[in-house]
């Protein structure tokens, strides 16, 4: 398991190097009693922040038009619900890391929520290999969430291998969108 430790260590270094915290989108959809995204909380603080998401710059809003906070739809609007991977790869790209950092912040804002990370593969591999690869991808996200201070008990993983492509077709564009990890707030019907 040495590789795992190194992965976590590298991720922690990267995190510590962050000048600013996760680049959360301004949350216009929160209800009045919900905390919304912090703009100023440093990433390093997040690690010890207890998941409360407290910080300056919270914006309360009375706008009720957006999705219910803590729901899957809320996650989709404010964080996005997926990251993508290179062919036959499970390492998080810098873009994917940024998304997972936003997911971590979201989970801290919604401490009662648990998330399932679904790992998926494109169809250019054998079925059993794709199950293993999907598991690696889901766990790459989970590992980084843990680095970001999320309680491991709040994050489950499941691999769907190649069984549930997001985009139909046998072409580069479909494959690129199918090599993914999807965040599903528990209690949401999964794929």
């Amino acid at each position: 398991m040495r590789f795992k430790f190194l992965t976590l260590f590298a991720a922690a270094l990267l995190l510590a190097a962050c000048e600013t915290g996760p680049d959360n989108q301004a949350n216009t959809g929160g209800s009045g009693q919900s905390r919304t995204a912090s703009q100023s909380t440093g990433g390093a603080d997040d690690l010890t922040g207890g998941g409360s998401g407290a910080g300056s710059g919270s914006v309360s809003s009375q706008n009720m038009a957006g999705p219910e906070p803590g729901t899957q739809e809320h996650l989709v609007v404010n964080v996005g619900d997926r990251v993508f991977f290179g062919f036959d790869e499970y390492q998080l790209s810098s873009e994917a890391q940024a998304t997972v950092e936003k997911l971590a912040a979201w989970l801290k804002q919604h401490p009662s929520k648990q998330v399932t990370i679904e790992g998926h593969a494109d169809e250019r591999g054998t079925r059993e290999y794709n199950l293993a690869l999907g598991a690696q991808r889901a766990n790459a996200v989970r590992d980084y969430l843990i680095v970001m201070g999320i309680d491991p008990n709040r994050v489950e993983t499941v691999s769907f291998g190649e069984e549930r492509p997001a985009v139909p077709g046998s072409n580069e564009d479909a494959w690129a969108q199918n090599r993914r990890a999807v965040f599903v707030v528990q209690g949401t019907p999964s794929s």
């Binding site: 398991m1 795992k4 499970y90 059993e128 199950l131 293993a132 598991a135 690696q136 889901a138 766990n139 790459a140 989970r142 590992d143 993983t157 691999s159």
Partner: peptide, 9 residues
């Protein structure tokens, strides 16, 4: 069988 524990089969 294969058993995957946290991404390691």
């Amino acid at each position: 069988i294969a058993l995957d524990n946290q991404g390691n089969s």
